[in-house]
């Protein structure tokens, strides 16, 4: 009995470690490559450095120096923050309201509204560029952050509503009815009950939306243009490479520079993904 338990435990760990290895190897390769000089990259595989990993002369900080030292990186970082923070908060907030009403209030046309929003998941973003930019030009918000926040909100809403709706539906109705009988308003029920209960769902949604907005290149390019004063990190980094792809090796370092912030967000929100938050509060 004990032996069986141990062996299944070993088996379990092997499976997980195998997945981890497959998932981390490509990224590890990029990380090592980002510390190698350009001529070495095109002449030998990144794993060859592991033959004598302590030979530090084969590594260089040049790629990072060039990426971080290029003009306007601080502006680009700041712009990315402005874009990503509002581009995350606005859609998540709007989606939480919408999803709650779709899940917990019965009204005419609810099925239709839900179908419409889920259907909008499939709209390819590229199609919306021209019509929206036309209107932005009339309103004078092309090339501004509020315009970009608005489109990120629209692009993020269908998935956010879809996911949160599924979550709210799973919350038992009697919980809300009890609150209502106690005399709470809709706002109170939403704000005091539904929102705190949905922290794990909200946390994962915030992570995803933040990642998408942070890593987005095309949408920012279309609505903001490549102008340095408003360009986010992705746009700035892509201009390190020449028109024929010269200096593409800088992208290795650039990838890690732009990854840091999303990873911090992920790690700091990961603590909400624990067992019990939901179960405990629903029961209580």
């Amino acid at each position: 009995m004990n032996l069986r338990k141990t062996s299944s435990r070993i088996f379990l760990n092997i499976i997980i470690l195998l997945f981890m290895l497959i998932w981390v190897l490509p990224t590890l390769g990029l990380l090592i490559t980002s510390f190698r000089p350009e001529e070495a990259v095109s002449n030998s595989g990144w794993w060859t450095v592991l033959n004598n990993p302590l030979k530090f002369t084969q590594f260089t900080l040049e790629n990072y120096k060039q990426v971080l030292g290029s003009a306007g990186m601080d502006t680009a970082f700041r712009n990315s923050f402005f874009i990503a923070i509002m581009g995350t908060l606005l859609p998540v907030m709007a989606a939480a309201f919408a999803a709650f009403s779709l899940a917990k209030i019965e009204f005419k046309g609810r099925g239709l509204a839900y179908a419409l929003i889920v259907g909008l998941l499939v709209v390819p973003l590229q199609l919306t560029f021209i019509p929206i930019l036309k209107i932005f030009n009339i309103l004078g918000i092309a090339g501004t952050f509020p315009g970009l926040w608005l489109v990120h909100t629209g692009y993020g809403l269908p998935f956010a509503v879809f996911m949160l709706h599924n979550f709210f539906v799973s919350l038992p109705d009697d919980l809300f009815e009890a609150a209502y009988i106690d005399g709470a308003s809709m706002w109170t029920v939403f704000y005091r009950l539904a929102l705190p209960l949905s922290i794990p769902a909200l946390a994962s949604l915030i992570i995803f939306q933040f990642l998408w907005v942070w890593n987005d290149l095309l949408v920012a390019l279309i609505y903001l243009g490549g102008n340095r004063s408003v360009a986010p990190l992705t746009v700035r980094l892509s201009s390190l490479v020449g028109s024929y792809g010269q200096d593409w090796h800088l992208l290795t370092a650039a990838a890690f520079v732009s990854m840091i912030v999303p990873l911090i967000i992920f790690f700091s929100l990961q603590r909400y993904f624990v067992r019990g938050i939901l179960a405990g509060s629903v029961k209580g």
Partner: peptide, 23 residues
């Protein structure tokens, strides 16, 4: 373990393109 699996989500598509070139 979860962080490792999640890592690729945090990489931009351009970065991912470079990564898989080396695979």
């Amino acid at each position: 373990a979860k962080s490792v699996i999640f890592l690729p989500m945090a990489i931009s598509f351009v970065g991912a393109g470079v990564i898989w070139k080396f695979v």
